[in-house]
């Protein structure tokens, strides 16, 4: 079963309630121990593998050596026969026989070492895949557990503080409202700024004697004087 599928089963079976623990803490520590043990046995297998491979190589060398010796002794036996040393040839044949026996033994050992090497390599491969799977599963289970526990702490903490995880729509409305308030305040401030800025400028211009406002008094005075003058002129003409 895949790791994710197992976590799915875990979630379906036990985690629907926030209060419940997703992973049994005991099971987790047992699991962690299993991973440690598996890793240790992988290390052990690696050590064994090195030893067996060395023996396999030794056996292979011994086989080559024996084959060469057998060929050499057989050559010498032929030579003895040629020189009519029948009994010497027999003796050499006996020696070759013994060497053939050892060759057969060495060949069997070599085959068995080779088989062990293949087996150990397979064992390490599958054990490593299993450890990786276990570690991933454990990480997922622990993360799930931690997330659920965090959520529980958060709910409890917010609950005890008088507030709670508020309804989403309410939250959104409040945040929106706050943003609108801010936007309104900014618009208002901008308008006020503009207005104040406008008036301030008018006042500055007036103070400097520039613009309609500054001139008004002078214009009115001029009008009054002109009128007075006109009246005086009229009287003088009478």
């Amino acid at each position: 079963m895949s790791v994710i599928k197992r976590v799915m089963t875990l979630l379906r079976s036990s985690a629907r309630e926030l209060g419940e623990s997703v992973v049994d803490a005991n099971a987790t520590s047992v699991y962690e121990q299993e991973i440690l043990d598996a890793k240790r046995s992988i290390e052990q297998a690696r050590g064994d593998l090195t030893g067996v491979m060395a023996k396999e190589m030794q056996a292979a060398r011994r086989i080559e050596h024996l084959k060469a010796e057998i060929a050499r002794y057989e050559g010498m036996a032929v030579e003895a026969l040629n020189k009519s040393h029948e009994s010497l040839a027999e003796e050499v044949a006996g020696q070759v026989g013994a060497m053939e026996q050892e060759l057969a033994e060495q060949s069997r050992s070599h085959a068995s070492y080779a088989a062990q090497v293949a087996k150990l390599k397979d064992l390490i491969k599958t054990a490593e895949a299993r450890v990786r799977d276990h570690e991933r599963e454990l990480a997922m289970a622990k993360t799930t557990e931690s997330v659920y526990r965090a959520t529980r702490s958060i709910s409890e903490s917010l609950g005890s503080g008088g507030s709670r995880l508020v309804n989403a729509r309410e939250s959104l409305e409040r945040i929106r409202q706050r943003h609108e308030d801010l936007a309104d305040r900014m618009t208002a401030a901008e308008a006020l700024d503009k207005e104040l800025g406008h008036r301030a400028l008018e006042r500055k211009l007036a103070d400097a004697g520039i613009g309609g406002e500054a001139d008004r008094q002078r214009q009115v005075m001029a009008r009054i004087r002109a009128r007075q003058l006109a009246l005086q002129g009229g009287k003088a003409a009478e």
Partner: peptide, 10 residues
């Protein structure tokens, strides 16, 4: 209303 929670697992 929308706090972020940071939590750590292994």
């Amino acid at each position: 209303e929308l706090p972020i929670f940071v939590t750590g697992s292994d």
